[in-house]
């Protein structure tokens, strides 16, 4: 005898799957709700835009850091993906590169931080600076950018490449005129998602870029250290006494909003570019 008939099984399956989906969304909503509840009152124009003991320097620092990271990592990552996907024949070297990319993506971020400290800060004499931090974060996001870009390139139908080659295009002409434009929405989405992840990282910049100062809020060159949101939050929460709890929560909220903003930008760009492509 069967316990349930197919209709009942269907309902049960639906209920379980719905619950799983709901559970996945719940923590995100809860986190945002708690931050808005606890920090919403602390979030004022003066906190946001005040240079002294405000968040403006940290916001600017974060955006500078993230922008510079994108500037380093994007061309390198996309170029590497094009090489791996379009040019490389499947040999031992390519397998080694792929293996390295996969494994790099799994390295804990604090290891990147220490590596960045050793290489960029000490050996290359960048000092604790915007430049060293961006270099370190670039290493962190590079594997992500490579694999998302490769995936986007993989999605371009083979028929389009063949059509182009059969018309007498070289490989590079095909990549530049057909493959890249078609992969661009995917590449850009992956890029921004990788970068937004970098924006929230603390460990890699802890030793390489971040500092806490009330007297030198803005960097004058790439060789100056910077204030960044994750580190600001870390310091406020652990080292500075008497910071109102609403301010801490407000800082956390701003950090999350910056990351969410970047993600939103990724989604908008993707939709816009897809629309453009189809006319």
């Amino acid at each position: 005898m069967k316990l349930l008939n197919p209709q009942q099984t269907e309902k049960l399956a639906f209920a379980v799957l719905w619950l799983a989906a709901a559970l996945a969304v719940l923590p995100i909503l809860a986190i945002i709700a708690v931050m808005v509840y606890r920090g919403g009152s602390g979030l004022s124009g003066s906190l946001l835009f005040r240079v002294e003991a405000g968040l403006l320097p940290a916001i600017v620092g974060t955006l500078l850091l993230v922008g510079l990271t994108a500037l380093f990592a994007a061309p390198l990552g996309i170029a590497a993906a094009i090489y791996l996907r379009e040019y490389a024949r499947n040999g031992p070297l390519v397998r080694l590169i792929r293996l390295a990319v996969v494994n790099l993506a799994g390295v804990p971020s604090v290891v990147y931080g220490l590596f960045g400290l050793a290489l960029f800060v000490t050996l290359l004499h960048f000092g604790r600076s915007l430049l060293a931090g961006a270099c370190t974060l670039s290493l962190l996001v590079l594997p992500l950018i490579i694999s998302t870009s490769e995936e986007a390139l993989r999605q371009v139908p083979r028929g389009l490449r063949e059509a182009s080659l059969a018309l007498g295009a070289t490989k590079w002409q095909t990549v530049r005129r057909v493959v890249l434009p078609n992969a661009l929405p995917g590449i850009i989405t992956g890029l921004i998602l990788s970068i937004s992840r970098a924006a929230g990282e603390t460990a890699p910049i802890l030793f390489t870029a971040a500092f806490f100062s009330l007297t030198h809020p803005f960097p004058k060159s790439v060789f100056d250290p910077i204030l960044v949101l994750p580190y600001q939050l870390f310091v406020m929460a652990t080292e500075v006494p008497n910071v109102p709890s609403a301010t801490k929560w407000a800082t956390a909220l701003v950090l999350v909003l910056v990351v969410l903003g970047l993600n939103l930008l990724a989604i908008i760009l993707r939709t816009r570019l897809r629309g453009l492509q189809r006319w």
Binding site: G159, L160, A166, G168, A169, T170, V178, Q277
Partner: peptide
Amino acid sequence: VVQLRRRVGMVFQTPNPFPMS
């Protein structure tokens, strides 16, 4: 090869127009 493919064109099984005008 590029020159060869100009002289010998090819039409494929599935229509494959580029996503352009």
